[in-house]
């Protein structure tokens, strides 16, 4: 479904992604793991066709996605109704007058009929516990509620590939559990970024680990990564700190 070949990207001459190669098949659930600043958001934006590689290629369903691709409105329609992204800060995603309109936004562009739109919106508002805010302006919601609303809004159009940038960061533990269950039930391809190692196993089976030098350090089963302490230290995902058990003072690595 997704193929990235020898892709590099930089901001103002600073390398943010270095020679990235990966393939993602339909219905795979991929976790993009790495510390802050390693390039997770940037890679997701590339897969969402928002920014384009400096060198190398990104293919979606065999089509090369670059700025020329989006010059054709038909291409845009097909890509944007199929690949969606949840931004790290949900604030930037919400621009409709009410919560209802926010969720209906995508389907209206796709010219679905109002009855179908209404059913789908009500269903999603209910799933995310947002029904009571139906007529409220999105900016009045709390951070966690905005996160859920943005998620509802992008899922409304039934996309095929969902890119989620640190979707758990703004949520309280209860909502985290709900969203994890919900994502699990969706039978679609997901790429979810996180800097939280302990969250990774909940979000997918395959993990792609990015290093601080912006390269792929590991790509495979999450469990064998969890046992590879050396790699985790290299990615700076575990850290040493001292603590005391009764009278004995010692240090060891922590996976949090």
């Amino acid at each position: 479904m997704v193929e990235i070949k020898n892709l590099s990207f930089g901001y103002n001459g600073k390398t943010i992604l270095r020679n990235i190669n990966l393939k993602i098949s339909e219905r795979e659930r991929v976790v993009l793991l790495g510390v802050n600043g390693c390039g997770k958001s940037t890679l997701l934006k590339i897969m969402n066709g928002l920014i384009f590689a400096e060198s190398g290629e990104f293919f979606f369903r065999g089509l090369l996605i670059n700025s020329d691709y989006f010059k054709n409105p038909e291409n845009r329609r097909s890509f944007r109704s199929s690949v969606v992204m949840l931004f790290q800060s949900p604030d930037v995603m919400l621009f409709n007058p009410t919560v209802y309109d926010e969720v209906a936004f995508g389907m209206r562009q796709m010219k679905k009929d109002e009855k179908e739109i209404k059913e789908r919106v009500e269903e999603l508002l209910n799933t995310f516990g947002l029904t009571k805010y139906r007529e409220s302006p999105p900016f009045e919601l709390s951070g966690g509620e905005k996160q859920k609303l943005a998620l509802a809004a992008i899922l409304a159009i039934r996309p095929n590939l969902v890119l989620l940038d640190e979707p758990m960061a703004n949520l309280d533990p209860k909502s985290q559990g709900e969203v994890i269950d919900l994502l699990y039930e969706l039978d679609i391809t997901t790429v979810i970024s996180t800097h939280n190692l302990s969250m990774a196993p909940e979000l997918g089976e395959r993990t792609i680990l990015l290093s601080e030098s912006h390269e792929i350090l590991y790509d495979g089963e999450i469990n064998s990564l969890l046992n590879n302490e050396e790699l985790l230290i290299k990615a700076n995902l575990v850290h040493r700190h001292r603590h005391r058990h009764k009278e004995i003072d010692h240090t060891h690595y922590h996976k949090h």
């Binding site: 969402n48 920014i51 944007r80 969606v84 931004f87 995603m93 936004f105 995508g106 796709m110």
Partner: peptide, 12 residues
């Protein structure tokens, strides 16, 4: 980010 999020959600 705002511009990109907007671009991301515009289908037509």
């Amino acid at each position: 980010d705002l511009k990109e999020a907007h671009a991301s959600r515009i289908i037509v």
